[in-house]
């Protein structure tokens, strides 16, 4: 088993862990963190699998993708945090209200 494959497995592990946390935690900050963990997992998979053949120079394209992905993730996190603060200011809690009026 190559080390790259191991990294990729760790990435998938992070993804799953994040998914689990996203579902079980109610606090929005934890949910946002969970999403970030998931994103890191995906990036790890991308980078790890860039080494397509043993010993050769890794493919640069996934690296470019990861950089783009990080930019997107940062802006998404910023938006999420801002939104969380607004939700807290409006409802007094940083949680998603249970479907009340539906």
């Amino acid at each position: 088993m190559s080390s790259a494959f191991l990294y990729a497995l760790v990435g998938v592990g992070l993804f799953t862990l994040g998914l689990y946390a996203l579902i079980v935690h109610t606090h929005l900050l934890r949910k946002i963190l969970a999403i970030n963990v998931m994103a890191s997992g995906v990036f790890l998979v991308l980078v790890a699998l860039a080494a397509r053949t043993q010993g050769a120079t890794p493919d640069p394209v996934p690296h470019a993708m990861v950089i783009t992905g990080i930019v997107v993730a940062v802006s998404a996190t910023a938006l999420a945090l801002a939104l969380m603060l607004r939700v807290r200011a409006e409802t007094g809690r940083a949680e998603l209200a249970e479907e009340s009026q539906e």
């Binding site: 998914l19 996203l22 929005l28 949910k31 946002i32 999403i35 998931m38 994103a39 998404a76 938006l79 999420a80 939104l83 969380m84 607004r86 939700v87 409006e90 409802t91 998603l96 209200a97």
Partner: peptide, 13 residues
Amino acid sequence: LTGAMRYLLVSLL
């Protein structure tokens, strides 16, 4: 705001 928050999380996921 809650609608938007839920939408954002789902969208990112």
